[in-house]
Write a protein that binds this DNA or RNA. Structure first.
Lengths: 136, 136
DNA sequence: TTAATACCCTATAAAAATGATAGACTAATT
DNA sequence: AATTAGTCTATCATTTTTATAGGGTATTAA
């Protein structure tokens, strides 16, 4: 399941994209408009900032703006930042690989093979940009 | 992520399938061979029994056998029994539908649309039988 | 220059989910 | 009757998730 955190992150980025302008958008505004608990949102925004998805402007009149071309911000990207791997088992994850420590031979593990196939079907769907998402 | 419980269930069914014979297989055997904590396994087996995936034979010499044609037991089926929905958000689940209670209009929610597409890509991969899984 | 706005950061807590164990009970076999 | 093995309920420990609290810092505008 997608965490609320990740869903909030997607909503936040979508909001920042659709309301983009020269002036930044405050966390307070996003919190109210998207009904995301303020402090929880701050936390998410900090994580997105760390990963250079958003930029922040401090002080009165400050807020957040997208840090890069919205065509380069994908849902998969946001999910990986917030929730970690897309794959349903860690031994088939590209970026968060971990041995499951259970099967004797990872190369021949059939559960692994099935979930590798699953992952390869999931990724293309999620690798769509926020621009694409906005257009759905 | 797939829960350990679901992974254990898949392993258990695969074991029952590959070691099927007129005599049932005890939970103890499965527990040892697949390194699944015994009491945890009992729990999983009970749930699988409730959903008529396995049958049990009580008493000495008893154990478990598959309750139906292995071609009709799919990984998706097991996952749904143990973990619930395949979909990553409940509002696009076929069998475990729940409103997310966040978006104003479910018909137009773009996050929903994307995750509906994701679900429709995932299901066919997981709707493969245990026979298919064994052959991978 | 000071009040207000708004981001920054650490810590903590409440709740839910996950993974596992305990123990008493029932049924069947040898 | 002793042993094997499934049944069932309860409980527990750990981790993850979902927040909240509160003090700080930077910037702007009155």
């Amino acid at each position: 399941m997608l965490s609320k955190r990740a869903k909030y992150a997607i909503k936040t980025i979508l909001y920042l994209y659709e309301h983009r302008s020269p002036t930044p958008i405050s966390a307070k505004t996003i919190s109210e408009k998207e009904r995301i608990p303020y402090k929880f949102l701050e936390n998410i925004l900090r994580e997105l900032k760390t990963h250079q998805v958003v930029k922040s402007i401090r002080g009165a009149g400050g807020g957040y703006v997208l840090a890069k071309d919205p065509n380069d911000i994908t849902v998969a990207h946001l999910m990986r930042i917030i929730d970690g791997p897309i794959a349903l088992i860690p031994c088939v994850s590209e970026r968060f690989y971990e041995s499951c420590g259970e099967c004797e031979n990872e190369e021949t593990c059939r559960i692994r093979k099935l979930f590798a196939e699953l992952r390869s079907e999931m990724v293309p769907v999620l690798e769509k940009s926020i621009v694409h998402l906005a257009g759905l």
